[in-house]
Design a protein around this nucleic acid. Structure first.
Length: 425
DNA sequence: TCTGGGGTCCTAGGACCC
DNA sequence: TCTGGGGTCCTAGGACCC
């Protein structure tokens, strides 16, 4: 007989909001939201903000009235802070088990298969208390035989008042109860399209889906849906991913602070994105075999026709040289630029990534490759030590350029900036 | 005036080959 | 009236995740 599996999903409650509250404890009990880049829309909400009916993804400009009336506290997103807090949470969780998967910035899966069933709940409570004590971040814990069921358990742990943030699903009867309470669209792996279709087919809850035959699910939702079905039935199809696999594509893009019409401004933005993207590429020791640049106008505009274009090109050989990438990226941009349009966003994607070691092995006899790598390494070291802005290219323009993000409500980088940390009362 | 950014996997269909 | 059949690779697009 196969050994029983048990996964726990530890999920930080309203993570970005919680990060801000750690350093502004007076915001406890107050409606708080965190905005996306460019202060575009809401991407995190405190419970009080949720209670006001503020939905995920609400454009910020649409809630300005509400914000004033209800005194909602607003923050621009501060990824340096959130990334650092996330690392603290992960290292705390690592005290509890060596088998841990960092699933996202605010979620980890833990393998708890070794625990006796009756101890899971208490273990979850200890995890919860320790993370809160060590990092200030409140988390919820859901445990179950599969990842998909652990997700269900986690969601209910947040919802059920008496659960105190921890729910372990073991007995069949409990699993059934949980699945009956879970709307089909809330199941991990079932998005908007499938949820809509399933509702039409009278499948309304996770329990309804679990009753459907495998062939039926395969037909309507392909193999990913089949996997979800089996996981709902308690058969684990997904293991923990203990080490993060290398990325296959790396993308850097941003909306501009305001629409741009001048090519030179867009070139500045794209150059900066390209350098950023190449830095990420080298961080995972890869080279890109091809690149894509995309450029767009405002797709929501009622008055202007939307324009979206993207161009790709293969590189003569896989590269992580930002000078080379920069040259090609700008070339593609110039091909796509049409005068007279108001652009809102540009971005670059590096594709078909391969390990740098393989490329260098292939090219050991080509002159210049080694020198090039050394130069890139030097750039990375300098930037890491002295900041992103220490070494830039003329084409990137100067600081505070017109294309830069709007960020009106940014908090301090409390955990990484000593001066600001000392200023906290 | 104002609507994020960064990923993954799967499938269908076309190109191409023998 | 007939216009094979099967395999592989690539790409675009859709769906999903946070």
């Amino acid at each position: 007989m196969a050994t029983t599996t048990r996964f726990a999903l530890v999920d930080c409650n309203s993570f970005y909001v919680s990060c801000e509250r750690v350093f502004r404890p007076e915001l406890e009990g107050v409606p708080v939201v965190v905005l996306s880049n460019n202060d575009g829309c809401v991407i995190a909400r405190s419970n009080e903000a949720k209670a006001l009916g503020i939905k995920m993804g609400t454009p910020f400009f649409q809630m300005k009235e509400l914000r004033k009336r209800e005194r909602v506290e607003v923050f621009s997103s501060n990824y340096e802070l959130y990334g650092d807090m996330s690392r603290r949470v992960v290292s705390t969780l690592a005290q509890f088990t060596p088998s841990l998967e960092v699933y996202s910035i605010d979620e980890c899966f833990l393998d708890l298969s070794h625990l006796p069933p009756e101890e899971v709940e208490g273990y979850g409570q200890r995890i919860r208390q320790t993370v809160l004590q060590w990092t200030g971040i409140p988390v919820s814990v859901g445990a179950a035989p599969t990842k998909t069921l652990a997700k269900v358990a986690n969601k209910l742990a947040k919802k059920i008042a008496g659960a105190q943030g921890v729910l372990a699903l073991e007995a069949e009867a409990d699993i059934e109860k949980a699945l009956r309470r879970t709307e089909i669209g809330d199941v991990w792996g079932i998005g908007r399209q499938h949820a809509k279709r399933l509702q039409q087919l009278e499948v309304h809850t996770a329990w309804d889906l679990r009753q459907m035959p495998e062939g039926w699910v395969k037909k309507h939702m392909a193999v990913t849906g089949l996997r979800t079905l089996l996981e709902l039935r308690g058969k684990a199809c997904q293991d923990l991913e203990l080490e993060t696999p290398d990325k296959k594509n790396i993308c850097t893009s941003r909306s501009f602070g305001r629409p741009l019409t001048v090519l030179k401004d867009i070139e500045e933005a794209l150059s900066t994105h390209t350098v950023r993207c190449a830095t990420k590429l080298r961080k995972q020791s890869s080279c890109a075999s091809s690149l894509t640049v995309f450029l767009m106008t405002n797709r929501f505009s009622a008055t202007e026709q939307a324009y979206y274009n993207s161009r790709s090109m293969p590189l003569p050989r896989p590269s992580h040289n930002e000078l080379e990438l920069l040259r090609h990226a700008l070339h593609l941009l110039r091909q796509m630029f049409r005068p007279g349009k108001r652009y809102v966003k540009v971005g670059i994607i590096l594709n078909d990534l391969v390990p740098a070691s393989e490329v260098q092995l292939d090219l050991f006899d080509k002159p210049g490759t080694e020198k090039e790598s050394q130069l890139m390494h030097t750039l990375d070291t300098l930037r890491q030590r002295f900041g992103h802005h220490t070494l830039t290219y003329a084409v990137q323009g100067k600081k505070d350029a017109v294309w830069m993000l709007r960020e009106e409500y940014t908090s301090a980088c409390y955990t990484t900036d000593v001066k600001k940390l000392l200023a906290v009362k």
